[in-house]
């Protein structure tokens, strides 16, 4: 049931990604100051935006988990954070390349998006170790949710603080000299955001489907072969057993 719609979503994502790629390479105008390499912007900024949204969404899922006690929400929150972390790393790498191309340094401290991105990464990088250090899956889900809620609120607050502390000397995405993005760039940028959003959602759906399937197979094996014939679960940072009926509250 989790596989439902995966095929259509996969196709849509492929189309959107190809369209973005074609538009970025062949249609979007080259930046006057920075040349072709500026086009990494169409990868970096959408990835960054999707990552930040995903972190906040994961916090909302985590809140649902605490409210309902249903482990389904823990799984969703976990998977969203997992994929967002990967997007976060991509965002950091593309950001570094962009910084090198534009300003000649691999890292600049006065680009608030990049800096707050690093801080957010450092925080969310502790999510997996935290989960790994808790063995009881119920407690793991609850504690991970508490973390995800706090961290979700941290994302915008942190961005604000970093932004306040940064002197804005470098050109900003939406605030170039002639005031805002030219129409063609804006269009490509929006297409790219949609494509990245689809890609994110697709990977999340795949991982949820994969995890659910693994659990179902395990539950079937336990039922068919007996509880002792199936090797016990090792410690894991991922949610490990199938979401079951939520305990009565």
């Amino acid at each position: 049931m989790h596989g439902k719609g995966l095929r259509a979503l996969t196709l849509a994502t492929l189309v959107a990604l190809s369209a973005t790629f074609a538009l970025v390479v062949f249609w979007a105008p080259n930046d006057a100051d920075q040349g072709f390499i500026q086009k990494i912007f169409y990868l970096h900024v959408p990835v960054a935006i999707i990552t930040l949204i995903a972190y906040v969404v994961a916090g909302i899922f985590a809140w649902r988990q605490l409210k309902t006690g249903s482990r389904e929400w823990d799984l969703r929150s976990y998977v969203v954070i997992h994929i967002a972390l990967i997007f976060n790393i991509v965002g950091l790498l593309t950001g570094a390349i962009w910084a090198k191309a534009s300003w000649g340094h691999w890292w600049v401290w006065d680009e608030p998006t990049l800096v707050s991105f690093l801080i957010v990464f450092l925080l969310y990088a502790t999510y997996q170790p935290l989960r790994f250090s808790i063995e009881d899956p119920e407690r793991q889900a609850r504690y991970a949710s508490v973390f995800a809620i706090i961290a979700g609120a941290f994302v915008p607050l942190n961005f604000m603080a970093v932004r306040m502390a940064t002197s804005l000397v470098h050109p900003r995405t939406f605030g170039t000299a002639n005031g805002g993005l030219p129409g063609e760039m804006m269009f490509v940028f929006l297409v790219s955001i949609v494509a990245m959003g689809l890609l994110f959602w697709l990977i999340v759906k795949y991982e949820i489907a994969q995890k659910t399937l693994t659990w179902q197979i395990r539950a079937l094996r336990r039922r068919l072969l007996g509880d002792d014939a199936v090797a016990p679960l090792g410690r894991s940072a991922a949610p490990t057993i199938a979401p079951q009926e939520a305990p009565a509250r």
Partner: peptide, 17 residues
């Protein structure tokens, strides 16, 4: 291990200000 690695990034905005 958990205390420092979780607390320190969480406190970055406070430290900045």
């Amino acid at each position: 291990l958990i205390v420092p690695i979780v607390t320190l990034p969480l406190l970055v905005p406070a430290l900045i200000a």
